[in-house]
């Protein structure tokens, strides 16, 4: 093939990929809407439809990720455009796995669908999808491991957050275990802890591999830049959550609040601190690479 033919082929493949990505985003959107209807009507069939919506989406989304890998002939987790998609996929897959263990609980699905859709839209609108080789600074096995572990842990925390919110809002009183949204009981709630316990080592690995990468690339494993520091805040908050789960009186509400706070910190790692800096009226003398 001549370079020009390769160029045409790549543009063609990227076109297909983008259509598929939009379609997957639409499916998340539809699932989210079904979730809203479920929230209003609380009809069990609609709850089941929500879970089915997410199941169908995960199939198409898997195809999308494999397609992207095939297009670039490399693992598709190398820039924010790709990892946002992977994050949404993993959140959905984790949710579906957990959901398969619950009896008739479908409601957290609408939160997961909403977040997955937001991640996909963010990827589509704010990033450039054109596949290009990694710049030298990012060519490190640590970098790849770092990105995969970070987004994997974030995805798991999203599901934990969704479960936590649904528990707080819809928990069923002990005398009638089957509430309007199914068995939202203590067994259901144990998933919040289980999920964070699963995600935490990966988040730890993400922080560590990020440091190892920085150490190879610049010789300084930690420089306290806001992004690094936010990941440390997130990590500390989840450590507090795990600790609170082992303290008798903090197992309930305080732990729930810490879980939700952990989720907010995680979002802050993404969105950066610029608005917070403005809120406090602090001049930012650096230009941070957020």
């Amino acid at each position: 093939m001549t370079p020009e033919e390769i160029l045409l082929r790549d543009a063609f493949l990227l076109g297909i990929e983008l259509k598929l990505f939009w379609f997957v985003t639409l499916l998340y959107g539809i699932s989210f809407l079904i979730g809203i209807v479920y929230l209003i009507s609380s009809k069990p069939e609609i709850g089941r439809a929500l879970t089915w919506g997410l199941r169908i989406t995960v199939v198409f989304h898997t195809v999308l990720i494999i397609f992207r890998g095939f297009e670039g002939m490399r693992p598709p987790f190398q820039n924010l455009y790709e990892t946002l998609s992977w994050f949404a996929w993993f959140a959905n897959a984790t949710y579906l796995y957990a959901q398969s263990r619950w009896r008739e609980v479908h409601i957290p699905g609408f939160i997961v669908a909403g977040i997955a859709m937001a991640a996909c839209l963010y990827g589509i609108f704010s990033r450039n999808p054109v596949i290009s080789p990694l710049p030298p600074a990012l060519q490190s096995p640590w970098y790849e491991a770092h990105v995969i572990a970070a987004f994997l842990s974030y995805a798991v925390f999203v599901v934990s957050f969704a479960v936590e919110l649904c528990y707080l809002k819809f928990k069923t009183p002990p005398e009638e275990p089957h509430g309007i949204f199914g068995y939202i009981d203590n067994e259901f709630r144990r998933w919040t802890h289980r999920l964070v316990l699963f995600g935490f080592p990966f988040l730890t690995f993400a922080v560590f591999s990020g440091a190892a990468w920085a150490n190879d690339a610049w010789g300084r494993y930690w420089s306290w830049d806001p992004k690094e520091t936010w990941s440390l805040i997130t990590w500390t908050v989840y450590a507090m959550y795990l600790h609170s789960k082992t303290v008798g009186r903090w197992k309930d509400m305080p732990a729930s609040l810490l879980n939700i706070l952990g989720f907010i910190c995680m979002i802050m790692t993404f969105l950066g601190v610029n608005w917070l800096v403005k809120l406090f009226g602090i001049p930012s003398l650096h230009t941070y690479a957020v």
Binding site: T229, W230, I233, M240, L285
Partner: peptide, 15 residues
């Protein structure tokens, strides 16, 4: 750990 997080937070806000 809570006190630590607050210090981290301050570190992200002030240059």
């Amino acid at each position: 750990l809570a006190a630590m997080s607050i210090m981290f937070l301050i570190g992200t806000i002030f240059p």
